[in-house]
């Protein structure tokens, strides 16, 4: 059983579960459809529907916004002001990517409210997000500094090259582990509560845990991930 990493039944309330085993092997490994895959697909469909709806609303935008258009404009302005603070005049080149991952991570973190296991509590998802950040940072470094991007690893003295190299590769690991571990701790706490506590305590009390672990922690970590991505990119401009 490759998905059930733990063999006690309590752990199954918060572990990633396999739903369907694919009938083929990929590079000698079994391929599973897990809860993460399903909830990622649900979240993608929700974001897609939201985007199509918002786009069609903004096709006939009014001069004085009301209702839904007001909400969209507020969100875009908040995102722009977040980018202005760090990236300055280079904001417009990166704000699309930042906005996309912001929406995806925020919706994933809040998906605990909808009874799903948050996809960001799976290291496979957050590590991919970290790899995206790493790729953008390295691409910008090579594009803007050329060979100086690599010689800067030998600054100020060549002896520090290993430390600089580790520091470069530690960035995607640290931002992805931060997001993953925060969400995982929330998922484990709520899984233990729902799995262990008597039935009458599960009526209203978990809402406080949800408010802290999903809402507060999730929003803060989304903000931190986007901020740090912008800070790392801004270093290479």
């Amino acid at each position: 059983m490759p998905i059930f990493l733990a063999n006690n039944s309590l752990a199954e309330s918060f572990m990633i579960r396999g739903i369907y085993k694919m009938p083929f092997l990929f590079l000698g490994q079994e391929v599973w459809i897990t809860t993460t895959t399903v909830s990622t697909i649900i979240i993608t469909i929700m974001l897609l529907a939201f985007g199509i709806f918002a786009g069609s609303k903004l096709k006939n935008a009014k001069e004085i916004p009301t209702g839904f258009q007001n909400f969209i404009e507020m969100a875009v302005e908040a995102l722009n002001s977040m980018g202005d603070g760090i990236l300055g005049e280079n904001k417009n080149r990166f704000i699309n990517y930042i906005g996309t991952i912001f929406l995806f991570i925020l919706t994933s973190n809040l998906s605990g409210f909808m009874g799903m296991r948050a996809p960001t509590a799976d290291y496979g998802v957050t590590f991919c997000l970290g790899i995206f950040t790493f790729a953008i940072v390295q691409f910008q470094g090579i594009k803007n500094h050329g060979i100086g991007h690599f010689t800067s690893l030998f600054q100020p003295v060549p002896v520090l090259f290993p430390i600089n190299l580790i520091g470069e590769f530690a960035n995607p690991l640290s931002i992805s582990l931060r997001l993953f571990a925060n969400l995982l701790s929330g998922v484990i706490m709520l899984g233990l509560w729902y799995g262990m506590m008597p039935i009458f305590t599960q009526l209203a009390i978990p809402s406080f845990l949800h408010a802290y672990c999903d809402l507060f922690s999730g929003c803060i970590q989304t903000y931190v991930f986007c901020m740090l991505t912008m800070v790392y990119v801004n270093d290479k401009l």
Binding site: S174, L177, R178, F180, A181, S185, Q221, V224
Partner: peptide, 15 residues
């Protein structure tokens, strides 16, 4: 923001 970044080392222990 600073607290969320400072939390990272504790989360490594949790992992």
């Amino acid at each position: 923001l600073g607290q969320a970044v400072a939390e990272t080392t504790g989360l490594y222990g949790l992992v």
